[in-house]
Every structure is written in structure tokens, then in C-alpha cells.
Amino acid sequence: MISRKAAEIGLASVTALFGTVIAYGATEFGVGWAPSGPEPGTFPFYIGLIVLVASLANMVAALVAGDGTPLLERSHLKDVARFVVPMIGFVILALLLGIYVATFVYLLGTMRVQGRYGWGRSIAVSLGLPLGLYALMEKAFQVPLLKGPLEALIGL
């Protein structure tokens, strides 16, 4: 089980890393003070440093006084995973097959497996949303969404 303390330390290391990357990336553009004001890298460099220092302080605080209670109850973790894993699947699918197809698969899957709806209702909803999105986005607002090989096949 992930304890609150571990999560604090984990998040603080992520923000510390982020601060380091920003500060490092900024050095490319000069981090000094030119005659006409700060150089392009100055501001991000010091921001990166501040984030790094504050993150390290947060990390120390968690190490010293972090509480060991779990961040998530086991049952809650399962609920979250059941929601998050298909969502990640949806994003990957959307990038591979386009948003419309991914929406269909994702909704059909979650409704059938997690909602335990019948085939009829599941298919109706999971077809209805992408079609509605298509009508609204591409036709009414003329905003193209990400498309995949299927749309290319039928010439959209």
C-alpha cells in the first residue's frame, strides 16, 4: 500500500526533477543580467531553482514528519484503477485509431464490462456519442478531430 509519506516523497521528487529540467534547459539562453535587462533564460532558470529547492524542502518535511497512513484504501485503489486504466487505454487508442473509433470502443467496453448494460443499450450509447460529436464538431463547428485509418478508408 502506498503511504501518504511515500506519495509526498514521490511527488516532491517529480517536482524537483521538473525544476531541475527547467533550470538546466534555461542555461542554454543565458541566465545573467544583460545591460538591457535579464537574458531570456534568467527568469526560467531561477524559477526552476526555486521549484527545486522548495521540492527538496517538501521532501525533507515528509521524511521527517510524514505520516504513514495509506493514501488510498485498498478498495478505493481498485475503483480508481478500474477508471484510470481504461482511460489510459482510450488515450492510446485515440492516438492510434482516431478519437471517434476510440470513443466507440471505450464506451462500449466500460458500459458492457463495468456498467453491466445489455448489448443494445451499450451499442446505442457508444455509437451515439461519436456520431453526435462528428455532427457537432466537424459539421456544425467545422473543427476536425483526430482521425485514424478507418476514416481514411471511408474517405472522410
Partner: peptide, 23 residues
Amino acid sequence: FAIIGPAIVVICFVGAYTVGSRP
């Protein structure tokens, strides 16, 4: 929620895409 949760997920990501058409 089994329906509306995933539907909101879809709408959020559609929204994120429409901001700049960037995958």
C-alpha cells in the same frame, strides 16, 4: 456514472484536442 463518467472523459479529451489540434 458508468455512462456519464466515460462520456465526460471523452468530452474532456475532445476538448483538449480542439484547443490546438495537437495529438
